[in-house]
């Protein structure tokens, strides 16, 4: 177990969340859709990553997309999003709706969309 093994990326990731590994509040899915509700009047207390998420989600995006954009692991993204939700700055769709939300019309739309790819 080398002391010189690089712990860098992980350490940096947790700096982003202030050392927190778990999001606060209700859990949300990796494909939950995040929408920015408003920009804060003052940006104190928000990290650059928080602000990036807010700018990005003016157009609704999924948790997974945000992870890609910020190049951060999903657990970290979840912590950041839960902060923004607590502040009322984003809405996050309720988790795990995709299978239950399917109906015949959407199935048909998905099949047609796939065929047209």
């Amino acid at each position: 177990m080398g002391a010189d093994e690089d712990p860098g990326p992980l350490v940096r990731m947790y700096v982003v969340t202030g050392g927190r590994a778990r999001p606060i509040g209700e859990a949300f899915d990796v494909v939950a859709v995040v929408t920015t509700l408003g920009m804060p009047y003052e940006q104190a207390g928000l990290s650059p990553e928080h602000l990036t998420v807010l700018r990005m989600c003016v157009r609704p995006a999924t948790v997974a997309d945000i992870g890609v954009y910020l190049r951060l692991p999903l657990n970290i993204i979840r912590v950041l999003l839960s902060d923004l939700r607590r502040e009322g700055l984003v809405s996050i769709d309720r988790p795990a709706v995709s299978a239950a939300a399917m109906n015949e019309r959407i199935y048909q739309e998905v099949l047609n969309g796939l065929r047209a790819l």
């Binding site: 590994a21 997974a64 998905v110 969309g113 796939l114």
Partner: peptide, 27 residues
């Protein structure tokens, strides 16, 4: 190893996206 380890394991997750229309995606 018996070495104390709590938060440092990572696992890869591959994913891709297909946009069928604005607001309808397959992941």
């Amino acid at each position: 190893t018996g070495v104390e380890q709590k938060t440092t394991t990572t696992v890869a997750l591959d994913f891709g996206r297909i946009t069928l229309r604005e607001g309808l995606w397959i992941y």
